[in-house]
Amino acid sequence: MFKFAKTLTLVSIVGILTACADSASINQQAAMGYRDMINEAKSQNQIDSNSKTAKRVHKIFNKMVPYANRENQTGQAFDWQIEVIKSKELNAWAMPGGKMAFYTGLVETLNLTDDEIATVMGHEMAHALKEHGKKKTNLSQFTNVIANVAQTALATQIGSDSSSIVVGLAKDWGLDKPYSRSAETEADEVGLFLMAKSGYNPEAAPGLWDKMQKASTGSQGILDKLSSTHPSDKDRQANLLRLMPQALALYKQNRG
């Protein structure tokens, strides 16, 4: 997961979902919340569709979706969608069912290459594909929180920065989402192979964490914020390097 601001003080915003709720219902509710959030972002001119950054993100997303679909073992077809949000925040996220967002700040502040964008994209897609969100809270909690988020965001919008709604509504889908260490590690691994199968060089993945760490120097670390649930940079780099021979073999098979 990737960092963004504490714009709204909400406990477990959009909480995310347990096995007691079925995948179809979870995906449907996530899609409804996503639609409302994106519509609000559009009304605030926060959606980027035409910039060079947006076009790069969409191109990489479109290239990776067919491969992500092949990895889908949830029993539910995903209606993948991504929006690029105008924000300085270093963030990207994916909801259950394949609803995603990428922030311009992540790409532009860190000057990400296409391979590095694909690293982030694969990691977030993997969270959705492995239904990590489904294991967090039940469906009733999810729908109640969606309503509370919308109400709080609208109230907060008065006199606030126009990007605050986007940041607030997305809060729990970014770094604040308390995925376990095992879920983060699995997302790293599945994402690494997914980007490689999609024709993006997996060797970019370990270095991305160096770049993220440097960006957070002097402040609360982007990855340190949830140190109890996120693998350390060193650990996740070591794990990615362990898997690199297999990932490179997939990359060489698919880059053409």
Rank of each mutant, 00 (worst) to 15 (best):
V57P: 01
V57I: 14
H58R: 09
K59C: 06
F61S: 06
F61L: 04
K63S: 15
V65Q: 11
P66A: 08
Y67P: 01
A68E: 08
A68P: 03
N69L: 04
N72F: 02
Q73T: 09
Q73I: 01
T74L: 06
T74R: 06
T74Q: 04
T74C: 02
G75L: 00
Q76W: 00
F78C: 00
D79N: 08
W80P: 03
I82P: 06
V84Y: 02
K86S: 15
K86M: 04
S87L: 02
E89K: 05
L90K: 09
N91V: 12
A92T: 02
W93I: 03
A94Q: 03
A94K: 02
P96K: 07
P96D: 10
K99W: 03
A101V: 12
Y103H: 03
T104P: 00
L106Q: 01
E108R: 02
E108I: 01
N111D: 09
D114F: 04
D115L: 04
D115T: 02
T119Q: 08
T119W: 07
M121R: 03
M121F: 02
M121N: 05
E124D: 11
A126Y: 02
A126E: 01
A126D: 01
A128F: 06
A128N: 02
A128D: 01
L129W: 00
L129C: 01
E131S: 13
H132M: 05
H132G: 03
H132W: 05
G133V: 08
K135W: 07
K136M: 07
T137Y: 09
T137F: 10
S140T: 15
S140Q: 11
S140G: 06
S140L: 12
F142I: 12
T143N: 04
V145Q: 08
A147H: 07
N148V: 05
A150I: 15
A150E: 12
Q151A: 15
T152W: 11
T152G: 07
T152C: 05
A153M: 12
A155W: 14
A155V: 09
A155T: 13
A155L: 15
Q157S: 12
I158H: 13
I158A: 11
I158Y: 09
S160Y: 14
S162M: 14
S162C: 12
S163L: 07
S163G: 10
S164P: 13
I165N: 12
V167N: 15
V167R: 10
G168H: 13
G168Q: 12
A170H: 07
A170L: 14
K171Y: 12
K171P: 05
K171Q: 14
D172F: 12
D172N: 12
W173M: 14
G174K: 05
D176E: 09
D176S: 15
K177W: 15
K177E: 13
P178I: 05
P178R: 03
